[in-house]
Design a protein around this nucleic acid. Structure first.
Lengths: 168, 168
DNA sequence: TTTTTTGCAAATCGTTTGCACGCTG
DNA sequence: CAGCGTGCAAACGATTTGCAAAAAA
């Protein structure tokens, strides 16, 4: 005999987690919330609210910007999405997959974002924190530089101005 | 014979530097710009544009918000002021005195800002950067935690929400 | 007198909110 | 059917901008 026919939809781990989070807060699992979650996890890279909103619009459905913002907020609280700035004046987000926390290395010329994780760095921060008697809760490190491809493309002045404009 | 009477105003080092910066860009040294510079350097701590604007207003003079923003921008470019976010949705600034660059440790409960400088941390970042073939230009590290006095004042949930709201 | 700077108020940008209606549990 | 959630459009807060008048070079 073959396997029984699947009678339930396959739920991704992130869906399961989101559902649990919502139930815990007596909030509701709506189609909009699921669509937003799915759209985020099928992406590969960093995105902003506007881009996400546009993508959802493209796929026929019509989810309002307000709902996108509200859901992003919930997803961040649920730990399923991370919010970063990456030096921009608007928020950037990324799916928080199983992988570890990481920091960002951003090219000031081409805006490429390279993620990295350095245990030494984490430990050092922990040590700094406890050294001052603080309890570390969260940190945000962004390194701005020039990637190998852009190293020689720009002059000092341009870069100086760009750094001055960072929202960091 | 005694010394000759002083016939010129005493110029602070930051004034001298600002003047040179402006001259180099063929920009003008105005009363407003000097007043803003002075107000910043007689402060002790971090501040935002609104606070600075209010302080300048209090002292009789009437410098517009627009001029405050425009001048802050120039001062950042001149390297006399540093711009940070400290997790807030608006920009924070601080006078860049002779002292070295530093990072910030921010209490999520009382918002105290502790500045620190850790050479190991700087070196490590430099090494990370060159390890990826990047040229390091700038970095921004903010550690969020609970200071000794606030360590036990808050519950997990409150803190989680606060972290989710950071503009970082 | 030429060029830059200022103040004002309006504009912008990303994000949030109040409200009436629509859906989930 | 009792709450939440949604879309809309208006409100928001921080910052920027266009313009005509004022000040520096």
């Amino acid at each position: 005999m073959g396997p029984l026919p699947e009678t339930h939809k396959v739920r991704s781990p992130e869906e399961v987690r989101f559902e649990a989070f919502l139930r815990g807060k007596k909030l509701k699992l709506t189609g909009e919330r699921l669509a937003i979650l799915a759209a985020i996890f099928q992406r590969d890279s960093h995105f902003d609210a506007e881009t996400l909103h546009a993508e959802l619009r493209n796929e026929g459905g019509d989810i309002s910007r307000a709902t996108v913002y509200r859901s992003l907020d919930l997803l961040v609280q649920a730990g399923l999405v991370r919010k970063n700035s990456l030096g921009a004046s608007h928020a950037n987000y990324e799916a928080a997959r199983g992988d570890e926390h990481h920091d960002h290395l951003i090219c000031l010329e081409c805006n490429t974002v390279l993620e990295f994780f350095k245990p030494d760095l984490e430990e050092l921060q922990e040590r700094i924190c406890t050294g001052f008697g603080y309890k570390l809760i969260h940190h945000s490190l962004q390194i701005f530089g020039l990637c190998p491809a852009c190293k020689d493309k720009t002059d000092e002045g341009t870069i100086r101005n760009r750094v001055a404009q960072l929202h960091t």
